[in-house]
Design a protein around this nucleic acid. Structure first.
Lengths: 192, 192
DNA sequence: TATATAATGGACTGATCAGTTCACAAAATG
DNA sequence: CATTTTGTGAACTGATCAGTCCATTATATA
């Protein structure tokens, strides 16, 4: 029996995820990733096969640990009436904390949407899937928050809210105030 | 008196603009730019100083030739009631033409928002300014389309429409159908 | 403790990057 | 037609890139 792996795989992925989040895929260099993970190049290649393999793992980690927890109340068996507004106030708070990764770097997935890596179908599928899931979750949240709405109006509002999220995350890097104002608009729409 | 410049500067910028639009700033290589413009490296550096200088020129060209013409009816001294809906049907048509640069590559500026080049303040200022102008123009269009709306509701609708545009452009690379559906939602909101 | 197994660090590869330099070609004036 | 001014292409520079490879180190078992 040989030695066992010294580092924690998930921890390494989290460290790499932060690098990709801050720099994007193409601008994240292997020295950057080595530094952040504390692993040497050969260990990275042994464990993940390639930079792409590590990025794919980072995407899965991002979905599971960043996106999914925030959407969980909206996907619960019974959805609280305030779950949608809670989602937006929570996201707003994250963007308002100027030192947070979300405030400074927006969304790992959406940032990739405009980059060359988005030409890889595995990546673009992940982004498109994320948008779909966000929309579906917000639609459930809207249904719980405004039970009187018919299906068409509910879907329309869900699409609007989804787009407000996407726009806010896109803008957060560029203009924090505009990003916060965008989320405030979402909250206004829900309290009208 | 020496010889005069043989190539058309604006034409060269347009060619470079297409390269940046398709590849983004960091992934557009100088050989790519040489090929597209038909200029040699030294001519590019002589005329534009650097890759960044050429990119800045491409941004200005994009704003002047792509963005501004589409917003012009919304910024006219008197705005037609249908100017907003025309804006969205026009943008939708561009995204529906699958071979168009917008359909395949979204927005040159918004793509840059998630890239490392967005850390340059000149670039992020241009993107933030574009979003502001889009919002202001759409607000004027909303005012002409729904004169009865009070200022708060008008600004709220303008922010929603702005975000729908941003989301649609962000998605166009990834999922054309979702991008078109996003713009359809904008048209629904305006005809309600 | 001997041995097998796997993690690891560092040197290396070939490609590509943005940017520089320079000798030469082209054209507008006198 | 000679001279001056400037545009231009190709070769070059040093840095950095992702990825490979191998000798060495560490550790879990028998």
């Amino acid at each position: 029996m040989g030695r066992t792996q010294a580092f924690d795989t998930d921890e390494a992925i989290r460290a790499a995820r932060t690098v990709f989040w801050e720099h994007g895929y193409e601008d994240a260099s292997l020295p950057d990733l080595e530094r952040a993970t504390g692993l040497s190049r050969s260990s990275i290649y042994h464990a993940f096969g390639s930079k792409r393999g590590l990025f794919d793992a980072a995407i899965k980690s991002y979905l599971a640990e960043i996106i999914e927890p925030r959407l969980r109340p909206l996907n619960a068996p019974t959805v609280a009436p305030d779950a949608v507004t809670d989602y937006f106030t929570g996201l707003r708070a994250a963007l308002a904390r100027r030192d947070s990764l979300s405030a400074g770097n927006g969304c790992l997935l959406l940032n990739a949407a405009g980059a060359p890596i988005a030409n890889e179908s595995a990546v673009s599928d992940a982004i498109a899937g994320y948008r779909q899931e966000l929309n579906a979750a917000l639609s459930l949240g809207v249904a719980a928050h405004k039970p009187g709405l018919d299906a068409v109006a509910r879907q329309q509002l869900a699409t609007v809210l989804t787009s407000l999220v996407i726009a806010a995350m896109t803008l957060s890097r560029i203009d924090n105030a505009q990003a916060l104002a965008t989320l405030d608009t979402a909250l206004q729409l829900l309290t009208d």
